[in-house]
Simulated assay, not measured.
Amino acid sequence: MTDQALAEQALVEEATKKSGLIWVRGASVPTLDPQDVGAPTRPLWHVWHDGAVYVVGDGPGEQPLPGLVDGREAVVTVRSKDKGGRLVSWTAAVVELAPGSEEFGVAVGELKGKRLNAPDGEAMTERWARQCRVVRLTPTGSVAALPDGSLAAAPVPTSATTRLPVPAGLPRLLFKKRRR
């Protein structure tokens, strides 16, 4: 591996470990182009374990996993935990784990510690095995260059206007009513 590839691998791993939320887009023909329109990009909570991201979803009360199809690729964008800006985008191989397998058990054990506000507490692991999908996203080594410009979408045209300034006497009127 070259020094560049090792640095990119380290960036992907450290950024993904530290971020509590990743943005994932599954696509039929994945590209690293952020302008590519495929499946919707979704924020997902996750856990990084043993060189891959694990996510759980597509069940009652869990996050949706649209476009994450076994055997395909997805684009993962990792944001900075403190500033929220994009740090890195990378492609991932998508593998759905079979319930009952050893890898499924390890992944569920790691995910269980990160799941907040589970409606069924300790029984959630059995529910995940019955009703949800657990997916592993393994980095393929492709890292996208950060974009030069903003990727923000233009606001939708509307006839709505911003609110006018508050009249100077309004606060006095409101406070008078409270005193009575």
Rank of each mutant, 00 (worst) to 15 (best):
R127H: 13
R127F: 07
R127Q: 09
R127I: 13
R127E: 13
R127M: 12
R127K: 10
W128M: 10
W128H: 03
A129G: 09
A129Y: 00
R130Q: 12
R130L: 05
R130T: 09
Q131E: 14
Q131T: 09
Q131H: 10
C132E: 11
C132A: 15
R133A: 06
R133M: 04
R133H: 15
R133S: 06
R133K: 15
R133T: 08
R133W: 04
V134L: 02
V134Y: 00
V134I: 12
V135E: 00
V135Y: 01
V135T: 15
V135A: 06
V135L: 08
V135Q: 01
V135F: 03
V135C: 02
V135S: 01
R136S: 13
R136A: 08
R136P: 04
R136E: 15
R136F: 10
R136I: 02
R136W: 11
L137A: 11
L137Y: 12
L137W: 07
L137D: 07
L137C: 11
T138Y: 02
T138V: 08
T138L: 13
T138A: 14
T138F: 00
P139L: 06
P139N: 00
T140A: 01
T140V: 14
T140I: 10
T140K: 07
T140D: 06
T140P: 02
T140Q: 04
G141S: 06
G141W: 08
G141I: 06
G141M: 03
G141V: 11
G141K: 09
S142R: 14
S142W: 07
S142Q: 12
S142D: 14
S142T: 08
S142H: 12
V143T: 12
V143G: 02
A144W: 04
A144F: 04
A144R: 11
A145Y: 01
A145P: 00
L146T: 02
L146R: 05
L146K: 04
L146E: 06
L146D: 03
P147K: 04
P147S: 05
P147Y: 06
D148Y: 04
G149E: 12
G149P: 03
G149S: 10
G149R: 05
G149T: 05
G149Q: 08
G149C: 02
S150L: 08
S150T: 12
S150W: 06
L151T: 14
A152V: 11
A152T: 13
A154I: 00
A154G: 00
A154K: 05
P155D: 13
P155L: 15
P155E: 15
V156A: 15
P157E: 02
P157Y: 13
P157M: 06
P157R: 00
P157H: 05
P157I: 07
T158Q: 07
T158Y: 03
S159N: 11
S159D: 15
S159A: 12
A160V: 11
A160I: 11
A160T: 09
A160P: 03
A160N: 14
A160H: 14
T161S: 13
T161H: 05
R163N: 13
R163M: 15
R163D: 08
L164Y: 01
P165E: 06
